[in-house]
């Protein structure tokens, strides 16, 4: 009797394993397939529009040719402001959590809040900046856009700074203290140096994150059809231009949107791959 049941049970189990294995392969193929599909579509639709004019001319009125110079410039300016504000704050906060208050109450609360901010809906950040900056000032502005992006930079930098400083071996700190270095110098001269690659990665990841962000810019900085270096005025930015052009009924605007999308994606992917290459495997989360 048993020798009749056993083979059938074995084959049933083996079949279950086979099905799961096939499904696992299929799921992975699906995930990779999506990546290929999206990148392929971008290259196919966006590459044909890529030319020198894209980088040297202003956004056109519908029906005529033009480029993306002002939104590209605007995006660079906004990203720079965001990094200039967000990085110091993020690094300092991360330093407190890893060095001074690794185990205290404040750090664990900040860690929790920071993780929430990290994944908070970015459109809510746009509303927040609208409430605190645009409404009181009475108009949309480049400053507001930069600050909105800075709010997104901070949690990323806090997280990576803390993680990387935590990885610095305590022996280094003890050695620094033993030769009489004050705490602040042992952090800035020793720990920062040991964790430098990881901290740079954090900033790169933050830049990658914000350079494609559209939602938080919708209300703070709005769009500007023309060249504007005045940060007190609405400023053009690449994601917003893509948003408006893609939803427009004009063919040449849609084509420009695709080209802009290709530029952003390539920039973001280059940034995140560089960031990954800087840190040895398994250290970033």
């Amino acid at each position: 009797m048993p020798d009749r049941i056993l083979p059938s049970r074995y084959s049933g189990r083996r079949r279950g394993d086979m099905i799961a294995t096939v499904l696992a392969f299929a799921a992975t193929a699906l995930g990779l397939g999506w990546l290929v599909l999206i990148l392929g579509a971008l290259l196919w639709k966006g590459f044909s529009g890529l030319s020198v004019a894209v980088f040297t001319q202003m956004t056109p009125p519908p029906g005529s040719s033009g480029g993306l110079l002002n939104p590209i410039f605007g995006s660079l300016v906004l990203t720079t402001i965001a990094v200039l504000i967000g990085t110091p704050v993020g690094i300092l906060a991360g330093t407190y959590m890893a060095e001074y208050g690794r185990y205290d109450k404040l750090s664990s609360v900040v860690r929790f809040i920071n993780d929430i901010l990290l994944s908070a809906p970015s459109i809510v950040i746009g509303l927040f900046i609208y409430e605190v900056m645009v409404a009181p000032m009475g108009h949309f502005s480049g400053y507001a856009g930069g600050v909105a992006l800075a709010v997104l930079v901070i949690p990323v930098v806090v997280r990576t700074t803390e993680d990387m400083l935590t990885l610095v071996p305590n022996a280094l700190r003890e050695a620094a203290t033993s030769i009489g270095l004050p705490r602040s110098m042992s952090i800035t001269r020793i720990c920062y140096r040991a964790a430098r690659a990881g901290m740079v990665t954090g900033v790169l990841l933050a830049v990658a994150r914000i350079s494609g962000e559209t939602a938080p810019l919708l209300f703070p900085s709005l769009n500007n059809q023309f060249w504007s270096a005045n940060l007190n005025q609405p400023i053009s930015s690449l994601p917003i231009v893509i948003f408006q052009f893609a939803l427009s009924p004009y063919k040449d605007w849609q084509d420009l949107a695709w080209t802009g999308a290709l530029i952003i994606t390539l920039a973001v992917l280059a940034l995140s791959i560089t960031a990954r290459a800087l840190v040895p495997s398994g250290k970033q989360s």
Binding site: L35, I38, A208, S211, A257, A261, I264, T265, V268, L269
Partner: peptide
């Protein structure tokens, strides 16, 4: 990398 692609790209695609 799928997470790195900006959401507006998913929108236009």
């Amino acid at each position: 990398l799928l997470a790195g692609i900006p959401s507006i790209i998913y929108g236009i695609w």
